[in-house]
Design a binder for these strands. Structure first.
Lengths: 213, 213
DNA sequence: TAGATTGTTAATCGATTAACAATC
DNA sequence: TAGATTGTTAATCGATTAACAATC
């Protein structure tokens, strides 16, 4: 039944551009704008108009020829499509520097992500709080995840613990893992993984700088 | 002369996979392996063999039919191609939680990135040290960047300061910006930007979880 | 109306995957 | 040798871009 997943599927590059449009729309709205055309977005963001039009179409928005899109309408189409209205709860494992940064970053709430608490196997880190989020011993992870029916796990542990922590998440019933470690984790087919690979990103930047990409 | 940039250009997706192969090779090597085939890498990483072969070819490595690649040879081809032998120096602006996490993350050294120091306009953060890296007032950024001929700037400031900090970097002669803020920054054509957009990544994960991507 | 803009279909481009000859 | 593997050319697939009719 995998085909069911793909009805109206948005290409990942399009999906990643949608929040950029949203940011710009909020700015224009704050300046009193009521309507926006792809031409305007185009010159502001440096993307071509037809691409923007195609991207926006995924939200179901309908524009007016000659006028463009109603900004409020477009914003609510975007918020709705991106799921920014309802919040998703998540647990984080690994309260080191990166974990702490993620716990402290309030911007996630704006995109519907609520990190409820963190877990760490270092006793010196547990029973602290970061940004009002408790840090608990990993022993409590499975139980709490099941009880609270948490679906999303954020992985911010050292490389060596990445796979074992991922396994712990999967055993506890986590369905989606946001992997901030540098290593690729192995997961069953039905588990979704999003891998933020900083090292790879730096190599991309570095190659671009050398003019080789 | 832009075409000169594209000789032997590696596709970005290929470039991002290369470090994964390297990680796996290091693991196999540590277990005593001497040769590796794409078939083996394939089953370990869940990618298809022909893609791996094509990716590895960018490094200039030549394998042996029936045998595969000499692991040491392949590792040094990768290290060389990815520039992991020589280090690149960078400055970071924004010593909040995320900045601190980046300063503390020792894994960057392994990929040739040396963050020398950080800058922040909050006096309570400056004159501290994180992971032996000084945090200085932003006023000193331009001068030091020029004097030390730093090419890479890491942007970890709040969204409101993203553009102005980027402008500061560009004025100081920075050629490549690694943008960890949530906003798209505008830069001249000759400046390279790599945007780590966590909010967009979360939305991708979220859509995947809902089976809509 | 004329012209700017939307929405959609067709063409292009680039990355992935398939096919297969060469090799050890 | 036979069979596994590399390296390369061709086919496929998906995203971007171009072309253009419809609309206000």
């Amino acid at each position: 039944m995998a085909f069911l997943n793909n009805i109206n599927a948005v290409p990942e590059p399009s999906l990643r551009r949608l929040p950029l449009y949203r940011d710009y729309l909020l700015k224009v709205k704050s300046e009193g704008g009521l309507f926006i055309s792809c031409t305007q977005i185009s010159s502001a963001l440096g993307l071509i108009a037809v691409q923007i039009r195609k991207d926006l179409a995924f939200t179901g928005i309908v524009g007016k020829p000659k006028v463009g899109y109603d900004i409020d309408e477009l914003l609510s189409a975007l918020d709705n499509y991106l799921g920014l209205n309802n919040t998703t709860e998540a647990f984080l494992i690994g309260a080191g520097n990166l974990g702490a940064a993620l716990l402290s970053y309030d911007g996630f709430e704006a995109c519907g992500l609520h990190i409820i608490a963190a877990f760490d196997n270092d006793p010196s880190k547990t029973s602290r709080e970061i940004n009002k989020k408790k840090i608990m011993p990993v022993e409590k992870f499975q139980n709490l995840t099941k009880r609270m029916k948490i679906n999303i796990g954020i992985l911010a542990v050292p490389a060596e613990e990445a796979q074992s922590s991922a396994d712990l998440m999967i055993n506890a019933g986590i369905k989606a893992i946001w992997n901030f470690t540098s290593v690729k984790i192995s997961v069953p087919d039905d588990i979704v993984v999003q891998h933020e690979n900083f090292a790879a990103s730096f190599l991309v930047l570095s190659k671009k700088l050398k003019g080789l990409l």
